[in-house]
Write a protein that binds this DNA or RNA. Structure first.
Lengths: 354, 354
DNA sequence: TTTATTTACGTGTACGTACACGTAAATGCT
DNA sequence: AGCATTTACGTGTACGTACACGTAAATAAA
């Protein structure tokens, strides 16, 4: 640990070289007025020459900023612990930037209730955050919220799903279409000539679940592009209860005995796995989404072969860090960050620190 | 941006509550002597009560530490650009922690020359780094180096491959055995009853390349555990030139026409891909390692089906950050961090920011 | 008992930047 | 010309911590 000797950088050195006080240098650095064009230019030149980078620690210390970030995401439900992963990422980021004077407060909404979204959003805005991270599950309400946030001139980040043209700072999340294609590719490896493939959407609000449609689209497009004659069937199930799903599934499988692979377009793949296990249908390849405990269990026991996963924890982590980097001017933030599309199997799940 | 009002935290507040000066509090915080046990206890109690966390910015500023990190990794060779990825991660980390007074200097060695390793290591130690990150490719020489580093009481991190019992701060890298198993699992999906599988090791120094052996072991163990009668052949090639590889490969394929899948145990899978393409053997499934440009090209064109990858960039990034977090006491550092084992295909490579 | 040493503290300055305030000089206005 | 305002700076203090230095009191050594 060496000490810094007589430094050749810093506002003091700049001031010395320009024959002005550090106050003037400070004004130039922060683009404040009160400096003659001549002096300003001279100082700017010296800053360039020295490649001066303000000492972040000193700067943060002196400015004693306190920033409050707000997060609006779905609550962890009993049905799925998916949102616990982004939340963990958010918490980790919060821990890391706490020392820089940033607090992160999370607000939750119920995925089954638009009303809860609106209420939580309102509550959040009441606290006048300096930056906002949201998972815009409900399209219309999210647009309304995004516009309010924009009027307040607060940086906004989206995770998990994107909303076009909302002047948001960044979007961090999956490319749904492409993940559907990947599922198709994986299935395509094991499929024989006359096998059929089944895509299943399970959601209590099917028509509004744009996620599922994008994935299904990518899935079908792959086979189309591959020029394969493979028949792709679709099963939409409007309920998430096992009994209802079982009824629909078994009817389909009864009518279509050639089905040899099933693609479930979301994390509810464990419901299908449970049914297949019960019915002893281990001849069917099953592929679905997300690193949930339930799903991992079926991955290990063999009912599920592949899980596709897009780093939910990292989405939360990067979302917060993007806001931080923007506000503290650490670096530029990318408008869109698409997460890698990970493939999880029995043989690599141990190392997936979701 | 709110200002901090009258704070209830900080050494000053602790000093006030304990009826001592901040100097005494400072001594307690840094476990220095010169404080009576009684006072020390009182202050420690108050610190706990307040859950006091020293202001990192102020602390860094006041201590004006300047730390030099040294990195010793293989040079980017013309044959493979693999090491450009860890290097990029290292550079990114360097950029991020530069503002905290850390400089990172990289030293390179030639993977074909033990001598170059020793020379670079010596050169590195001359500069008296405060922390060291190395990729210990040569086992014996690395152990010698690790011991020297330990004597100097400098924190040491390994990436890419581990060396047991070297008192290193952390290891960040792949689990080779398990990645071999994963390759086997992927191949196992498409294999028919009587198909044979070929594992190929390509290295100019086969007997010392412990990486390859670990992977091959995992690969074979999978089939063993699965209780499959699949025959696994092995081909060791001591040269990396296409002509030599081609001769060995074609001879093997000629003798064993039932080979339907090939597993290359390192990034030289592109050599095999080139040969298979030339010989129009697209009936063979090919799987290998690493997100290199050459490999990605064959992934896109279809010769290679899967690439297994263990986030080389992240290894470099995390290695540096681990040293940083340790020295700045940001957080505890894990002894071993195994990277996720990623599967790259034609359908997801676009989003793999290696 | 006197002197030297150790213990247990307090004080002051520094780190590099931010920002409020002060103030000469220049300019504008009537 | 006389006064108000603006321009273009300089100065001082603060941020929270680290650390060197100073010093009174307690203890040990003579």
């Amino acid at each position: 640990m060496k000490k810094t000797g007589a430094e050749l950088t810093g506002v003091k050195e700049i001031a010395r070289r320009a024959n002005v006080s550090i106050g003037t240098v400070d004004r130039v650095i922060h683009n404040r007025k009160g400096v003659s064009d001549e002096t300003r230019q001279k100082i700017k030149l010296i800053i360039e020459e020295l490649d001066f980078q303000p000492n972040k620690m000193a700067s943060l210390l002196a400015s004693r900023k306190i920033l409050n970030f707000a997060v609006l995401i779905p609550a962890v439900s009993t049905e799925t612990d998916y949102w616990s992963y982004p939340l963990n990422g958010i918490k980790q980021a919060a821990t890391e930037i706490k020392q820089f004077g940033v607090t992160v407060k999370s607000y939750f909404y119920d995925l089954d209730s638009v009303e809860s979204f609106k209420l939580s959003a309102e509550e959040m805005l009441k606290h006048e955050p300096h930056a906002v991270l949201i998972a815009p599950s409900f399209v219309e309400e999210s647009i309304t919220l995004a516009q309010k946030i924009q009027e307040l001139d607060i940086p906004l980040a989206f995770i998990n799903s994107d909303l076009p043209n909302q002047n948001n700072l960044t979007y961090i999340g999956p490319d749904l279409y492409q993940s559907g294609r990947l599922a198709a590719q994986l299935i395509n490896f094991t499929i024989q000539q006359n096998d059929k493939v089944l895509a299943i959407n399970i959601s209590s609000d099917l028509k509004n679940d744009h996620h599922l449609l994008r994935k299904e689209h990518g899935f079908k497009k792959f086979f189309e592009d591959a020029g394969k004659p493979t028949e792709i069937l679709t099963l939409n199930i409007n309920e998430t209860k096992v009994a209802a799903v079982e009824k629909a599934l078994m009817e389909m499988l009864g009518n279509q005995p050639e089905i040899k692979a099933i693609f479930v377009t979301n994390s509810r793949v464990n419901i299908i796995a449970e049914i297949l296990k019960k019915r002893k249908r281990d001849d069917i390849l099953l592929i679905g989404y997300d690193f949930l405990k339930k799903n991992i269990n079926y991955l290990v026991s063999g009912q599920i072969t592949f899980l596709i996963c897009q780093r939910p924890k990292e989405q939360g982590y990067l979302g917060i860090m993007a806001l931080y980097k923007h506000l503290f001017k650490i670096s530029e933030v990318e408008k869109s960050v698409y997460m890698p599309i990970d493939i999880i199997t029995k043989e690599n799940y141990q190392f997936y620190n979701s």
